[in-house]
């Protein structure tokens, strides 16, 4: 199995831990992110935003353009079986990659904009992106059970998997992958 992770975090502890575990289970893991570093056992493909962003939201959206462009380039070399995006800020690129490769999409939310207070000017857009991601994903992984309360009624129950980052959580994520691939 070959999995493509998409994140806007420079060093995602979630993907780093999951990737290291998966690499040990013969899953080939690639991550596209704005990093300068490396992650043990994971193929890291760094991307950078070369334009100046007016605010955080714009920077994330410009980064998503780069995530998609990098993924399109990688598909010339690698055949991915699954796309896994982390948080709202990687949702546009995750959806685009899933459509481009015609492969299932998994998204992970550590929290939602409503839980964070939804108090900044872009909150409505962020909420929309979260809903887009939940709608397009085959499985939505939540790392906190309380988030499922927020998504109740908006995302079908059978699509939601609550997998807190404790114990053998990575194995549970692998089981999710196994159901989709």
């Amino acid at each position: 199995m070959r999995v493509l992770f998409l994140t806007t975090k420079m060093q995602s502890s979630y993907f780093e831990s999951l990737g290291r575990f998966l690499a040990g289970r013969k899953v080939e893991v690639h991550v596209i992110c704005p990093t300068h570093g490396s992650m043990e056992g994971i193929h890291v493909h760094p991307v950078h935003v070369n334009l100046q962003a007016n605010d955080g939201f714009e920077w994330y959206m410009l980064l998503n353009v780069e995530l998609v462009r990098c993924a399109a380039e990688l598909t010339k070399t690698y055949a991915f079986d699954l796309i896994h995006g982390e948080e709202w800020c990687a949702i546009p690129a995750s959806i685009a990659c899933s459509k481009l490769l015609e492969k299932p999409l998994v998204v992970t939310f550590h929290s939602t904009e409503i839980e964070r207070g939804a108090r900044w000017p872009h909150s409505d857009l962020i909420r929309r992106l979260e809903m887009d991601g939940a709608k397009e994903a085959s499985i939505v992984i939540l790392t906190h059970a309380k988030t499922s309360e927020v998504l109740k009624g908006e995302v079908p129950k059978e699509k939601i998997e609550v997998i807190p980052m404790e114990g053998d959580w990575q194995l549970k994520v692998l089981e999710v992958y196994g159901r989709l691939v």
Partner: peptide, 28 residues
């Protein structure tokens, strides 16, 4: 992009662009 409160036209344009990409890739 639906009824969404965007603080400025650039943010809205990004949302529109991402919707366009999703649709275009369905048409590939």
């Amino acid at each position: 992009p639906g009824q969404v409160k965007a603080p400025d036209v650039v943010s809205w344009a990004f949302l529109l662009s991402h919707r366009m990409v999703k649709e275009a890739l369905k048409l590939k």
